[in-house]
């Protein structure tokens, strides 16, 4: 059983929901990334999502775009991201780690090399924003060989009949994008989320996590009631960078983001 499946089973048995933070590798510094991942786990994260910096992050709003720019300025490539996962695994063999990014760095590395390096590093899952089921076939073949989960996005615009096409290719969990838009955008409508989650549940027994538009304990709790987990990214990065821009140190900035995650954990646990 994969680390992700195990994780969701344990949570489900305990009647708990997954809290999944997203940060960009190398943002704000290369040295801060792995310690921040450990801090996020200590603050209650169940699964970690690590963003691979890309020059053209087409689905990201301004907050995460700037995170990608900082990661690139720190010269973080896909190879370095995998090295960070390797380093993280030296202290934590339990928490699932997903890497999230765009197709081209993976294409450039080569699917087979990428899959085997992921397995060696201890990566559990992959989200590639611009590889829909129609384009993912050859990569999925390689991921299956090394039992790495491929996690797909389903959005409010996904027609009901298409959900099956997506779930057929997916493993680990389904990531429901709660708003039409880029990361960090708008406010989500939780009643609309409920309708879509029911449609997805009709097609798959995989856990469903919801992301895009979750900003705080309240919005996390509103969605957590319906889903198996919540993903929070922009709010963490925004909290960290705002603090640093108003004079806080790197450690204080990270601590503020970790504190936000702790309050989201509490919000989801106490709903």
């Amino acid at each position: 059983m994969s680390r992700l499946t195990q994780c969701f089973e344990t949570l489900s048995n305990a009647g708990r929901k997954a809290v999944i933070p997203y940060i960009v590798a190398g943002d704000p510094t290369v040295a801060s990334t792995v310690p921040m991942l450990h801090s996020l786990v200590a603050a209650g994260a169940d699964v970690l999502e690590l963003g691979v910096p890309f020059s053209d992050p087409m689905s990201e709003g301004p907050v995460i775009q700037r995170g990608h720019e900082r990661g690139l300025a720190n010269q973080v490539s896909l190879t370095q991201v995998l090295e960070m996962v390797t380093e993280f695994r030296q202290q934590d063999q339990a928490t699932p780690v997903i890497i999230m990014g765009y197709a081209n760095p993976v294409e450039r590395m080569g699917y087979a090399v990428f899959a085997s390096e992921c397995a060696t590093a201890g990566v559990d899952g992959l989200i590639t924003v611009d590889l829909p089921p129609e384009e993912v076939g050859p990569l999925n073949v390689e991921l299956h060989k090394v039992a790495i989960d491929n996690i797909f996005l389903i959005s409010p615009t996904t027609p009901a009949q298409r959900i099956k096409t997506i779930t057929a290719n997916a493993s680990g969990f389904i990531y429901y994008v709660a708003v039409k838009g880029v990361t960090g955008a708008g406010n989500l409508d939780s009643s609309d989320v409920g309708v879509h989650l029911d449609l997805i549940r009709a097609e798959t027994g995989l856990p469903i996590c919801v992301g895009f538009g979750i900003k705080d304990a309240e919005s996390a709790a509103a969605v957590g009631v319906m889903a198996d987990g919540v993903v929070v990214g922009s709010a963490l990065i925004d909290t960290m960078t705002n603090a640093m821009e108003s004079g806080s140190s790197l450690d204080e900035g990270i601590e503020k983001a970790v504190t936000l995650l702790r309050s989201i954990r509490a919000g989801v646990d106490n709903m």
Partner: peptide
């Protein structure tokens, strides 16, 4: 068609 899911439909 290498785009985010939201644009597929």
């Amino acid at each position: 068609k290498f785009v985010a899911e939201t644009l597929m439909s």
